[in-house]
Design a protein around this nucleic acid. Sequence first.
DNA 1: CTAGGGTTAG
Length: 553
Amino acid sequence: MIQKQELLSLIEACRSVRRLRQLHGLMVATALVRDVVPLSRLIDFCVDSRHRDIAYARALFARVPAPTTYMWNSVIRGLSDGDEPEAALALYADMLRHGRSPDHFTFPFALKACSRVPDPSFGRCVHGRVVKAGYEADVYVSSTLIHMCVSCGDIPSATSLFQNAVNRNIVTWTTMIAGYAETDRAGEAIRLFSEMELEGVEPNEITMVHVLVACAQSRDLETGRRIHARLRRAGAESIPSNLVLATALVGMYARCGSLKTARHLFDKMTVKNEVSWNSMISGYNQYGRPNEVLQLFKEMRDAGLKPDKVTLLSLLGACADIGALPLGQEIHACVEKTIGSGDVAIGTALVDMYAKTGDAPSALQIFASLEGRKDVMAWTSMILGLAKHGHGTAAIDLFVEMTQHGVAPDDITFIAVLTACSHAGMVDEGRKYLEAMEKLYGMEPRMEHYGCVVDLLSRAGRLAEAERIVRSMPIEPSTTIWSSMLSGCGIHGDVALAGRIGDQLAQSKPQGGGTSVLISNIYAGAGRWQEVDEARRLMWKKGLKKTHGCSSI
DNA sequence: CTAGGGTTAG
């Protein structure tokens, strides 16, 4: 008959679940089957990420008449990071029902499960018990509590837990920094990092990763560089040997538009995975470098890696940029073969690609197939696609439909809507939507929004209205805005307004020769040669030459 | 037996 000590060493040496089942079989005939120590080892083995057989772990657990807290914890832990975190919570509830008190191990596991389920009430429930049982001071518990609040989108609670924490360690700080970075509060993340340094807490690699993410998100290249310099001082390596850290660094430079630096570091990485390749490729995509996207993707494939969802997003973006429909179709086929086009992000990228490459029917078809999953980006890309194809009315109809579906428009939606009005010459609608944006939706129009409407009014010859908008805008009008007004002046022969704009521009700092040329052309058109000379002289005085037209091809 | 890591469309 097998002895306990022998069994334990056999379990420790075990390498597969198959073998583990045999060992379990050996126990069944003996009293060891009721011994919690070997049983715990068996459960831990199945829960371990290397072997992972949760079903077997649960089966073993179910046969134990009075499982120890340790066993409850093991199974909850195993379920908490699996495919069904709900099961971890169900087991946690079972544990309470069996009169077992959760301990400082149980809570981190249960809270992890809470942060992975959509319903925030589980988290609140477990949080309540943490307080009742007096585990708030435990750093493990408080860190997972903060993480859980962040996952539920409850930043105020996370912040208050962090500030009131009796014990904080680097994980607590990092969790809070990551929480801010993940929820578009990059400024807060960076501020908290400075505070941490002032308190003399040393960051580790994970902290650095999140600070770099915050820098990337807010395009804060300056802070990003400082972090990079720190990393170089800390380790002798020119690129961190840690894959995730190196990727975050590349991603930071790429998102800030320092593509050369990003690429330089990327090329130095000796080990790369999909995420590393994606961060470089999406950098090229975000900054309008479609050829580099396609080139680097080829290299990624040559390196033996397959494109995933994120890679495909960039590839579709590149096709849209260069107007490559056949290539776009090829990538679409690849999407269907691998992840499917049902994902909103992918669907939106497809809609955009088809719209920009001139295949409106396919764009519409993909859009329709998204059904109830359509978010603001999906709607906006379709509205913009229709607008650019000259279907202004259809675009506006779609906007109305979107609001009826309860999807709230954002600033970019309004650019799409105003573009639709602009392309279709819907002057009054354009004015109406600009006003609605402010008054109804409480959004502050940006230069692009004013630009659309000014362009629309100018082209319709309603220059007085355009001028009124420009003069009452809360922001300094851009050259583009003045240019579209001047174009309007040219078309509708409003020499007086062109002159006023010219004076205005003469007082401001030089912004390029384009507007001066427009003005002198308007004077020339009206036969006012003296003013033409004057306008040209002004151009020279400001040290400007007529900028030559430059083709993108 | 415990907590916190990178890429993502309009």
